[in-house]
Design a protein around this nucleic acid. Structure first.
Length: 526
RNA sequence: GGCGCUAUCGUCUAGGGGUUAGGACGUCAGAUUCUCAAUCUGAAAACCCGGGUUCGAUUCCCGGUAGCGCUACCA
């Protein structure tokens, strides 16, 4: 580390350091952080921010720090911290340090605030919040721009002391220069410049002694030696305030990279109104973490096209993402969260899932829907015995059912939803399916006869079943399709399912025959 | 209202002073077929508007418009 790099050293060396040079130094020892506030669940926007931070750290061999910004005591809920951590773990975004709770670091913030006050960069403000609110409301009513008016900015030492002696509560405000401008070079947005006259003397320390966001972030980013601040673009306009603080502390600011926001289909900022925004909700809906992660990665970032990754390849392994992630390739414009594309991506990942993992996930889904049967469980690896051989065959039947269904699943929910008939005898006949495929008047008799013939098929395989059914159709001078489609509805209750004969094989003889008869009985009654 | 940022198919985006403006999702059509999905083939679909610079702007500059963000003793 070159001299003068200790952020807390207060060296002025950095004031002459160019942005490019600072960047170079920062690259040598990358430290990034994700700093959610536990006032809500892990939002997909937050998850993407975390992902980009994580990718950046992994790409550059850096450290990914997790920090919980819980300085708003009223709104922060400890149980939400757990939910956020779980969300991150689920997505595979493991942090190297933390979680660090800001609520446990109040001394650090007060120290920094005191330092700022001593150096004249901050001053106590005795204005009552209600008073300020009234002024603001008035200004708004008169359609004037409002900014803190500096009432307490130039109080004499004696006056400050007098008011303190009176026990009047004071907030600490940052003294923003009256003129000039503040600029920084954002990795995504480029140079951003703001007139200091536009920035108000913002609060650093509340009158109850707790820090505000700005104090907390700068203090912690300094303490944690954060080199790159990668966060949502909603912080872009706040950044000059923080840059001003770094300047007042004679400390080098980190490199900033702001990420465009994620919007709902109506182009409004994504919120509950648009449906699920919490990562956990997607998990519950049967989305795979790697699918959500891949989808989120592409929401604002385009991987480079190369020989190994021809234009159009959007399904990326985590390794490919790490190898190619680049802040320069992050888009500047906000992106609409496209549920359809997520669903597609999820089906791609679902189809590529290795057998064991798929079976485990299907089991979990069925269990939570109350459809799981212990007989399907993975038999213990111990030596074979009569009982286990039996269990093993049940297991095999379960496994082949799941594998048969794999290619048509959109989410894990399908296993307990549209695939229900494969795991339970309790299912209804879909009205549309009945209308479409149960038109043939002679159907009850046909289904019964078919059932009778299938009873004699040996062995009960897809091929044998198909042969039997086609022979039967020919005898009856029926198109095989009529029988096939009718039987599909009988076996699954649906018009949509895998190849009928595969369905028969997977169900087994007894359920197949029973369901055909049951359908015949049902038809008799209607 | 003030300030900031952004602007390519419906959506995510590539591209860049001269291109048939490329890809992905979705949509539509066809192939396949026992339904659906998958797969394959094909199609429709975009440079916000106005000025300027230029031989030539979708690309560069300015303005407008729209969208989003910030404008708290929230983060």
């Amino acid at each position: 580390m070159p001299p003068g790099f200790d952020a807390r050293g207060g060296s002025t060396f950095f004031s002459v350091f160019s942005h490019a040079q600072a960047k170079l130094v920062a690259m040598a020892n990358i430290r990034v952080r994700f700093a959610p506030s536990p006032t809500g669940y892990l939002h997909v926007g937050g998850a993407r921010t975390a992902l980009y931070n994580w990718l950046f750290a992994r790409r550059h061999g850096g450290v990914f720090v997790l920090r919980i910004e819980d300085t708003d005591l009223d709104r922060s809920k400890p149980e939400l911290v757990t939910a956020i951590l779980e969300g991150l773990e689920w997505l595979g975004l493991h942090w190297d340090e933390g979680p660090i709770h800001q609520s446990e670091r109040l001394d650090r913030y007060r120290d920094l605030a005191a330092r700022l006050e001593r150096s004249g960069h901050a001053y106590p403000c005795f204005c009552a919040p209600e008073e300020l609110q009234a002024k603001r409301a008035r200004a708004e009513a008169e359609r004037r721009a409002w900014k803190y008016d500096g009432t307490c900015r130039n109080l004499s030492q004696a006056e400050q002391a007098r008011r303190r002696a009176e026990g009047r509560p004071a907030a600490l405000r940052f003294r923003v220069p009256e003129s000039g401008e503040t600029a920084f070079d954002d990795e995504v947005f480029g140079r951003v410049v703001l007139q200091n006259s536009q920035i108000e003397d913002f609060v650093l320390l509340r009158s109850d002694g707790n820090p505000t966001y700005h104090l907390g972030v700068v203090s912690d980013d300094l303490d944690l030696r954060i080199t790159h601040v990668i966060r949502g673009a909603d912080h872009l306009s706040n950044t000059p305030k923080q840059v001003l603080m770094y300047r007042a502390l004679a400390a080098p600011p980190p490199v900033f990279a702001h990420l465009p926001l994620i919007l709902g289909p109506d182009r409004q900022r994504l919120s509950k109104r648009h449906g699920a925004t919490a990562v956990g909700a997607y998990r519950e809906q049967g989305v795979l973490p790697e699918a959500l992660r891949n989808f989120l990665a592409l929401l604002g970032w385009t991987p480079p096209a190369g020989a190994d990754k021809p234009d159009g390849k959007e399904v990326l392994t985590i390794e490919e993402m790490i190898a190619t992630f680049d802040l320069q390739a992050v888009s500047k414009s906000n992106a609409v969260f496209d549920l359809e594309k997520l669903a597609w991506m999820n089906s791609v990942y679902l189809r590529a899932l290795p057998r064991n993992r798929l079976l485990a996930l299907a089991e979990a889904e069925l269990a939570s829907a109350g459809l799981w049967r212990e007989a399907w469980a993975d038999p213990p690896a111990a030596g074979p015995s009569a009982g286990q051989a039996q269990a093993g065959s049940e297991r095999e039947a379960f496994a082949s059912t799941v594998m048969l269904l794999q290619s048509r699943a959109r989410t894990l929910k399908d296993f307990s939803g549209s695939f229900r008939a494969f795991f339970s005898d309790q299912f209804d006949y879909d009205a549309e399916a009945v209308k479409k495929f149960w038109k043939e008047p002679a159907l009850p008799g046909l289904l019964r006869e078919l059932a009778a013939r299938l009873e004699r098929v040996e062995p009960f395989t897809a091929q044998k079943c198909e042969k039997k059914l086609r022979e039967f159709a020919e005898e009856k001078k029926l198109k095989a399709g009529v029988l096939i489609n009718a039987a599909r509805v009988a076996l699954t209750g649906q018009a949509v399912a895998p190849s009928l004969f595969d369905v028969m094989a997977v169900l087994g003889r007894t359920p197949t025959v029973a369901r055909l008869s049951r359908a015949a009985n049902f038809l008799d009654k209607t």
